[in-house]
Nucleic acid binder design. Structure first.
Lengths: 153, 153
DNA sequence: TATTGTTATACTCTATAACTATA
DNA sequence: TATAGTTATAGAGTATAACAATA
């Protein structure tokens, strides 16, 4: 489940070093690995965590609404919810208002997991930004939020 | 090749909004899409661009060295270099010092592409950080560099 | 007509493990 | 023994296109 190839490198990376895209991708891989490690007990990926967290904050949400909020296709959500339902973390309830749609809720197990999991995620975040002081970490979050908000997120 | 599912969303994302991991991932997807769009003429992915750029700055680099510098497995590099070689962007030359190893160099076509491509990449970067002013964009880059440097990058 | 959930399918990126030829 | 390149294989994660049921 871990993910970081070995060995140091001392190669001159040239213009890459000035690209946000490049550093964003590297940092994201790091944060993903930290997350996977922090969640190794509960075996939850960042994507699954996002879904659980979202449902937790919005009980009864539809699959399509989750997909839209996370920026993925609704077809993609099917397998994700399947997996979470199979592990008894999420329940597909019939929507009371729309017979096409599922109202997603967390099971008790799901609620417990997201309770503990949120702390683990915060811990993993701290590890990711370990090179930054508190002010810088907040700055980073603020800047990323601006970028994301600007692109409709 | 584009990648962003449709529709606005106005769902409360709860604790996710305080996670660097979450915003890092979303921002990275945005930057990836901007990159793909900027490079649509030349059909170069961020990963391929990284390889070309790295070879450009370090002519004669081995595949393993590129893999290490970019944080991927050397087995992963094989197909990437295959693709770039098939498009006549990169040439595998026999290393003069180590008969196991390939010395990677850019073809003329590859040099031309990375010349233009670097500007396109910078343009795509500008789009990614369009929500930030110049000072903030530099801050972001600095913070991301700190994170990456801390994890050995 | 448009939307929800679903299935089938495919593509990209990446890893692990084992092999060979060197070093 | 260790490293470079390679192959085979597999697993995430995600997209597109089409379909039935419902709005």
């Amino acid at each position: 489940m871990s993910n970081t190839p070995s060995k140091k490198n001392n190669t001159n990376i040239g213009p890459l070093n000035d690209l946000v895209t490049y550093h964003l991708r590297r940092a994201q891989v790091t944060s993903f690995n930290n997350f996977a490690q922090a969640m190794s007990e509960v075996q939850i990926t960042p994507g699954q965590f996002g879904v659980l967290s979202l449902i937790s904050s919005n009980q009864g949400l539809s699959q399509s609404a989750v997909a839209r909020a996370l920026g993925v296709e609704r077809s993609t959500m099917v397998a994700v919810i399947d997996g979470l339902e199979k592990r008894d973390l999420v329940i597909r309830q019939p929507s009371p208002t729309d017979r096409r749609s599922n109202a997603l809720v967390l099971s008790e197990k799901g609620q417990k997991l997201i309770g503990d999991g949120t702390d683990m995620a915060i811990g993993s975040d701290k590890k990711t930004v370990a090179a930054l002081n508190d002010e810088e970490a907040i700055q980073l979050l603020t800047l990323l939020r601006k970028i994301n908000h600007h692109s409709g997120i």
